[in-house]
């Protein structure tokens, strides 16, 4: 989902940046208010930000498809620190990843939209919808799976909208076929680690989990 500089037309880069601006503003506001309420929130946020940075740049080989890709980590982050704060830490992670050859600066808005906004909010919504109806591990795991897959569905859409405006649906499907087969096993891995981390925290450090969900 890391779209490089030069791939998307500049107009579309601007549109994706513009879409991100309100989320960044709300994210900064969320972080400020949470930090005021609980000074421990900031180190937790920093730790989760570091986790998102590593998870979303760690390429895992999928031998069945002969290619590699990475999970996103944003659904897990949203459950723990809140969805708007996750948008901010995703952007920071994506900014630094541009210097490691993943993504770009002009495409930071597009990459933030797919991983930081769609991945975060679809995962978070899945968790919130299921948390009172299913065990924590299942609702968190499904949040991870949905957020992961939706990130790549969105990246494919961004490419199709920017590059093939006359045949968006066909190219959306085509680009997603490039991501999908490798991403499904990794989304299952995202299911496992999101379920594991969130249910472990729910048992051992439930106060950490309340930070994200209670205010969300």
């Amino acid at each position: 989902m890391h779209i490089s500089d030069g791939i998307l037309p500049l107009a579309w880069c601007g549109i994706w940046y513009a879409v991100c601006i309100p989320f960044w503003m709300l994210g900064v506001r969320e972080i400020r208010s949470r930090t005021k309420e609980d000074p421990k929130y900031l180190p937790t946020l920093a730790m989760i930000g570091a986790a998102v940075f590593v998870i979303s740049v760690w390429h895992i080989p999928v031998p069945v498809t002969g290619s590699c890709s990475h999970p996103v980590g944003t659904p897990m982050a949203a459950i723990i620190v809140g969805p708007f704060a996750t948008v901010v830490i995703s952007s920071i992670a994506l900014f630094f990843q541009a210097f490691l050859g993943h993504g770009g600066i002009t495409t930071l808005g597009a990459n933030t939209f797919s991983m930081g906004i769609v991945g975060t909010f679809t995962g978070y919504a899945t968790y919130v919808l299921l948390k009172n109806r299913a065990p924590v591990w299942l609702s968190a795991g499904l949040a991870g799976f949905v957020g992961d897959m939706m990130t790549y569905v969105t990246s494919a859409l961004e490419l199709a909208l920017g590059l093939n405006p006359h045949s968006v649906i066909y190219h959306w499907w085509l680009y997603f076929l490039g991501y999908g087969p490798t991403q499904i096993p990794l989304a299952l891995a995202e299911f496992a680690f999101t379920a594991g981390v969130v249910s472990y925290i729910a048992v051992n450090r439930p106060e950490l989990l309340k930070v994200g969900v209670a205010h969300g």
């Binding site: 779209i3 210097f99 680009y175 490798t182």
Partner: peptide
Amino acid sequence: LEGTDDIVEDLATSTTHVQAKEIVPAI
């Protein structure tokens, strides 16, 4: 193994002739 980002970008560049540019120097 090749990353899916590269695979999809190759697909995109082959149909539209856009080319990835390195604006920030990658480490």
